[in-house]
Nucleic acid binder design. Structure first.
Length: 308
DNA sequence: AATTCGTGGAT
DNA sequence: TATCCAAGAAT
C-alpha cells in the first residue's frame, strides 16, 4: 500500500485490509472482487491484484510464509527493488540497501549528486550502499526515510534540526532544495468522455472494467471508451432514451485530466439487462468499491436532483 | 528505457 | 488554481 502513497493516506485502508485478511492464507482465499473493492479509492489498483497474486504464490510455493532472501522476495508479484530490500532488512534483519523517494532525496543532498532523476538512481543506490551499516540496516533505512519525511523535506528542509547537516554537501552549497534535480515531466493532456447512468427500480447498472489498463478490474459506470490517449466517442453503450445532465465531473489522473459528461436513462422493468454487469442498490453504492472518479460522478448525479 | 499506472495533501 | 509529490512496479 505504501508504494508511491503517503503513510497518512494508507492508514485506514491498512487497518481494515489486515483485519479482513490477517494472513497470507486468508488473503489467498479471498474473492478478487472483494480485494479490489477494499482497495477502492487508494489508487494504483495493480497493487491490489499483485498483493493477491503474491499471497497465492506464498501459500502455494512457500507454505504461507514469505521467503527471507531479497532475491526470492524480488521474484514475487508486486515486490520490486524497494519492497524486497525493505522486507529483507526490516522484517528479516538482513543487510539490504533500501531506496525509496525519501532516501533518493536525502542521499542526493548528502552527496550533492547533481545528475537528474531518474538517471541518477544507480548513483544514489551506490551512495546509499556506501553508508548502509552491516547490522540494523532496517533501522537505518527507516531512519533515513523518516529523516526525508520530516526534516529533509522537498521544500524548506529543516537543516538546523538535521543530524546529518555536518556532512551534507547540498546544505554546504547553500541551496539544498536544488537536490535532487529531476528531468521535467510531460504536460498532462485534457480528455473528455461520457459515463452512463442506467437506473431501474432503485438500482444502478454497474460494469467491471477490463483486466488491463486504467482502473483495471474495478467496478465502474458504463462509459464511451475514453482513455488517456483518446476522447470518448460519445456513443452510449445501449440504445435508450438518454438524458444528458447539466453537470460535468473533472478528475486528474497521473498522466491526464478528464472532463466527464454524464447521461442518464430509466431502464424499463422487464427489459433484458443492458449487457454484462450487475444491478447495484442505490442505497449501498458506498459498498460497491468504486474508484474515486465514479464516486464523484455518482455524487454529481445525486446532487443534480430529478433525473428520470 | 520509457510509459503507464490514482489519489489526496501541501504549497 | 496549478503544480508537485508520495515507504514504486510492471510492461
Amino acid at each position: 500500500m505504501l508504494q508511491q502513497t503517503t503513510v497518512a493516506a494508507v492508514g485506514a485502508y491498512f487497518q481494515k485490509f489486515t483485519q479482513t485478511w490477517p494472513d497470507f492464507a486468508a488473503l489467498a482465499a479471498a474473492d478478487d472482487a472483494d480485494v479490489m473493492a477494499a482497495w477502492a479509492g487508494l489508487g494504483y489498483y495493480a497493487r491490489a491484484r499483485n498483493v493477491l497474486k503474491c499471497a497465492r504464490v506464498v501459500v502455494a510455493e512457500y507454505e504461507g510464509r514469505l521467503p527471507q532472501t531479497e532475491a526470492a522476495l524480488l521474484k514475487l508479484p508486486g515486490i520490486g527493488p524497494y519492497t524486497a530490500a525493505a522486507i529483507a532488512a526490516i522484517a528479516f534483519g538482513q543487510r539490504a540497501v533500501v531506496v525509496d523517494a525519501n532516501v533518493e532525496r536525502v542521499v542526493s543532498r548528502l552527496f550533492a549528486i547533481s545528475a537528474p532523476l531518474p538517471q541518477s538512481k544507480p548513483l544514489i543506490r551506490a551512495a546509499m550502499d556506501s553508508i548502509t551499516p552491516d547490522t540494523q540496516s532496517g533501522d537505518f533505512a527507516q531512519a533515513m526515510m523518516d529523516l526525508g519525511a520530516g526534516i529533509c523535506s522537498v521544500r524548506a528542509p529543516s537543516c538546523p534540526a538535521c543530524p546529518l547537516a555536518f556532512a551534507c554537501d547540498a546544505m554546504r552549497s547553500g541551496n539544498p532544495e536544488a537536490y535532487p534535480a529531476k528531468t521535467p515531466k510531460a504536460a498532462k493532456p485534457q480528455r473528455t468522455g461520457n459515463a452512463y447512468w442506467i437506473e431501474r427500480d432503485g438500482q444502478l447498472w454497474l460494469v467491471r472494467r477490463a483486466d488491463k489498463g486504467l482502473l483495471a478490474g474495478m467496478r465502474a459506470l458504463p462509459d464511451d471508451q475514453w482513455t488517456a490517449r483518446l476522447d470518448g466517442h460519445a456513443t452510449p453503450p445501449v440504445r435508450a432514451n438518454w438524458h444528458k445532465l447539466p453537470v460535468q465531473v473533472s478528475h486528474v489522473f497521473t498522466h491526464f485530466s478528464l472532463l466527464l459528461d454524464i447521461a442518464v436513462t430509466a431502464w424499463p422493468a422487464g427489459a433484458d439487462d443492458p449487457g454484462d454487469g450487475i444491478w447495484w442498490p442505490l442505497k449501498s453504492l458506498d459498498k460497491a468499491g468504486l474508484p474515486t472518479l465514479f464516486r464523484k460522478a455518482i455524487e454529481a448525479v445525486l446532487n443534480a436532483g430529478e433525473r428520470v
